[in-house]
C-alpha cells in the first residue's frame, strides 16, 4: 500500500517538475510547481514526517507560491522572445542539471541500500513534531535564534531599500478620519429666499 502510494506520488512529482520546465506559459509553470510542492508534501507524510509535510504546504504552497504566482501573472511575457534564448542558456542549464544528478547519485550510493523503511522521521521522540521541536528549540536553540536574526536583518534591509517617502503624496490618516465628527463637516445654514449663500 505504502509502496503504491510512493510510486504514484513520485511519478506525479517527476512529471510535474518536468512540466515546470517544459510549459510554455509561465503561469502554467508556476501551477505545475505548486503541484510538485504539494505532492512532495505527500511523500513527506509517507516517511512519517507529517509536521514537515504540513509546514511545506502552509509555507511554500500557501504563501510563497501565492506571491510567486502573483508576480508571474503581472509579467508582460512575450512568448516568442522567451523561446529564442533557449539554445544560449542550454549549456549552463545542462551543467547545473548534471551537477544535481551527480549529487543525488552520490548521496544515494553513500547511503548504501537507501532503504526507506530504515528511515526514522522522529528520532528520540514520539512524534515528528516533538522531534523537530527538540532539535530546533532545545539542542540548537542558539543557531535557530541566529538564523532568525539574519532573516530579520534581511527583511529590514529589503524594507530600507524599497521604502521611499515621496513628498506631496496624499496619505490616509486613519486616526484623523475616525476622529471626524458630523459637526466638523456639516453646517446648518438658514438661507433666505432669493438671496443664496
Amino acid at each position: 500500500m505504502e509502496l503504491i502510494a510512493f510510486y504514484i506520488f513520485a511519478a506525479i512529482v517527476t512529471v510535474s517538475a518536468l512540466a515546470v520546465v517544459a510549459a510554455r506559459n509561465p503561469v502554467h509553470s508556476v501551477l505545475w510547481l505548486i503541484l510538485a510542492f504539494f505532492t512532495s508534501a505527500g511523500l513527506l507524510v509517507l516517511i512519517g514526517a507529517e509536521f514537515l509535510a504540513m509546514l511545506l504546504v502552509v509555507v511554500y504552497v500557501g504563501a510563497v507560491a501565492v506571491l510567486f504566482l502573483f508576480v508571474v501573472m503581472m509579467l508582460d511575457v512575450d512568448f516568442v522572445e522567451l523561446k529564442q534564448g533557449f539554445l544560449s542558456y542550454l549549456p549552463f542549464g545542462a551543467l547545473i542539471g548534471i551537477a544535481f544528478i551527480a549529487e543525488i547519485a552520490l548521496a544515494g550510493f553513500a547511503r548504501g541500500s537507501g532503504n526507506m523503511a530504515q528511515f526514522d522521521a522522529s528520532p528520540g521522540a514520539e512524534t515528528n513534531t516533538e522531534a523537530i521541536g527538540q532539535v530546533m528549540y532545545t539542542d540548537y536553540f542558539l543557531l535557530f535564534q541566529l538564523a532568525g536574526l539574519i532573516l530579520l536583518v534581511a527583511m529590514i534591509g529589503a524594507i530600507v531599500l524599497t521604502l521611499r517617502h515621496k513628498p506631496g503624496v496624499k496619505r490616509q490618516n486613519i486616526a484623523k478620519q475616525t476622529a471626524r465628527r458630523r459637526r466638523d463637516a456639516t453646517e446648518a445654514v438658514q438661507v433666505e429666499p432669493g438671496k443664496g449663500l
Binding site: 505548486i34 507529517e50 504540513m54 509546514l55 502552509v58 504552497v61 500557501g62 501565492v66 504566482l69
Partner: peptide
C-alpha cells in the same frame, strides 16, 4: 490526524488558488 489543526490550516491556505 496527529497534526489535524495544521492540516486544516494548510488546506484552507490553499483555497486562494481557486480564486487566483
Amino acid at each position: 490526524l496527529n497534526v489535524g489543526i495544521l492540516y486544516l490550516f494548510a488546506i484552507s491556505s490553499l483555497g486562494v488558488y481557486g480564486i487566483i
